[in-house]
């Protein structure tokens, strides 16, 4: 794999970006026509350009602060998988239609393939790996295991993260709400019947 650059404190920080100091752009050194200002209205006064050279970014992944140096075109999914070796989020369609790359960004379920890594600066990223502490399983993957709501398992972390985010948002979510939460996720092996059982157990347990 390409070696992640995890050292140094001269990269773009969330605060630096928000204050629009221009320091970040100066640090990466290259201006381009891309308009990251659109990312945050507060920086509109002082447009900052990134890339195409790699940009140093910082965010937290599963509670661990990380820094990574990637080109601005790199998605959060690819930054996690190819640069940080966090592979629980899977790449399947790579364009926001299958849900296999679902992660939580500041608690919200997000398709990691539809978010650029630079958009995730300073944010709290959670992947499926976060749902096990040693041998203790979070309720969502535990229900999937009990009900056998997975076969090849390649889509499973995405489903699990979508449900985790829905339950975080509303621990008393109904079956219909949880089914809605995974409406954007696709399973090819056909584990939906068992997934319904898992959802039923989650509603009873967490409702």
């Amino acid at each position: 794999m390409s070696q992640p650059k995890q050292t140094g404190r001269d990269g773009i920080t969330r605060r630096g970006f928000l204050t629009g100091s221009g320091l970040a752009a100066a640090t990466v050194g290259t201006l381009s026509s891309t308009a990251p200002a659109a990312l945050d209205p507060s920086s509109a006064a002082t447009p900052i350009a990134f890339g195409p050279a790699p940009v140093r970014l910082a965010f937290t992944v599963n509670g661990r602060p990380v820094q990574v140096q990637v080109e601005p075109r790199v998605t959060l999914l690819d930054a996690l998988r190819n640069y940080l070796d966090v592979t629980g989020c899977k790449r399947v369609c790579d364009r926001g239609t299958c849900g296999a790359c679902t992660v939580q960004v500041d608690g919200r379920a997000v398709y990691a393939c539809t978010l650029l890594a630079i958009e995730a600066r300073g944010k709290d990223i959670r992947t499926a790996e976060n749902l096990a502490q040693g041998d203790t399983l979070d309720a969502v993957p535990a229900a999937f295991v009990r009900c056998d709501a997975q076969q090849c398992g390649f889509c499973t972390p995405g489903f699990v993260m979508a449900l985790r985010a829905a339950l975080d948002k509303n621990p008393r979510a109904t079956v219909a709400e949880l089914e809605q939460a995974v409406a954007g996720n696709i399973c090819r092996c056909g584990t939906y019947e068992q997934m319904r059982q898992a959802i039923a157990q989650l509603v009873r347990k967490e409702g």
């Binding site: 399983l137 295991v145 398992g153 499973t156 699990v160």
Partner: peptide
């Protein structure tokens, strides 16, 4: 391998 798969560790 259910837990490993469901938590992305597989």
């Amino acid at each position: 391998d259910g837990a490993a798969k469901a938590t992305g560790r597989a």
